[in-house]
Every structure is written in C-alpha cells, then in structure tokens.
C-alpha cells in the first residue's frame, strides 16, 4: 500500500519545511518584538524620527512591510526553487519510475 518514500522528495519536503519554519520564526520575532517594545519602551517609541513620524509609527509600518516582504520571499523561493526541483523529480518519476 504505502510505497517507499522517495528520498529526493523527502529531502525537498524537509527543505520546504525549514524555509517555512525559519520565515515563521522571523515573522514572530519581528511582531512580538514590536509588541514588547510597545509594552516596555513607550517613551522611546514616542520619540520623533522626523516631524510627524515617531519611532512607533515607523516601527508599525515596518512590521506591515516585513509581513509582505517575507511572504514575497517565500513565494519567490517556492516559485523559483521548490517548484522547479519538484517538477524535475516528478519528471524523473514519470520517465524512469515506471509510473502509469
């Protein structure tokens, strides 16, 4: 019933998980870092970078931009690396693996 796990596929799956977990941890660090700054460094975040822009606002905007950029990093990696490698493995299977 269960076929042997394909080592190439398993390796690629592990790589995807590593990338996904790393990015999740990064996002957590950025967001919870921001929250804790808000909680413990209120005066600092109230200081102005320039007229109208406090460190707090700059930080909040930065978290939003980071969320978008990290998502973009993952999508770019998955489209350029993961999908290409996956297609290669699938092709090898079809050609040499005796798949129906």
């Amino acid at each position: 019933m269960a076929r042997d796990p394909d080592p190439a596929l398993a390796k690629l799956a592990a790589r995807r998980l590593t990338v996904a977990a790393t990015l999740t941890v990064l996002m957590c660090a950025v967001y919870f870092g921001f929250l804790l700054l808000v909680a413990y460094q209120k005066p600092l975040l109230g200081r102005l970078v320039t007229g109208g822009l406090s460190y707090g606002i700059a930080g909040g905007v930065l978290v939003i931009v980071t969320a978008f950029v990290l998502t973009g990093v993952y999508v770019a990696w998955a489209n350029r690396r993961y999908d290409v490698e996956l297609a290669r493995i699938a092709r090898a299977h079809r050609d040499g693996g005796g798949e129906p």
Partner: peptide
C-alpha cells in the same frame, strides 16, 4: 492615534503564517 496601528499590525501578521504553513 498610534494605538490603532498596534491593532492593524496584529490583524496582518497571521497572513505570512498562512502562506508558510498551511496554504499549499
């Protein structure tokens, strides 16, 4: 003022996690 931004940020940060861990 600023406090509203803390709120907005929280609603957004779940989305990267959806991308990384569950969507595919």
């Amino acid at each position: 003022g600023f406090d509203g931004l803390i709120y907005s940020v929280g609603w957004l940060v779940g989305w990267p996690v959806v991308t990384f861990l569950v969507a595919e």
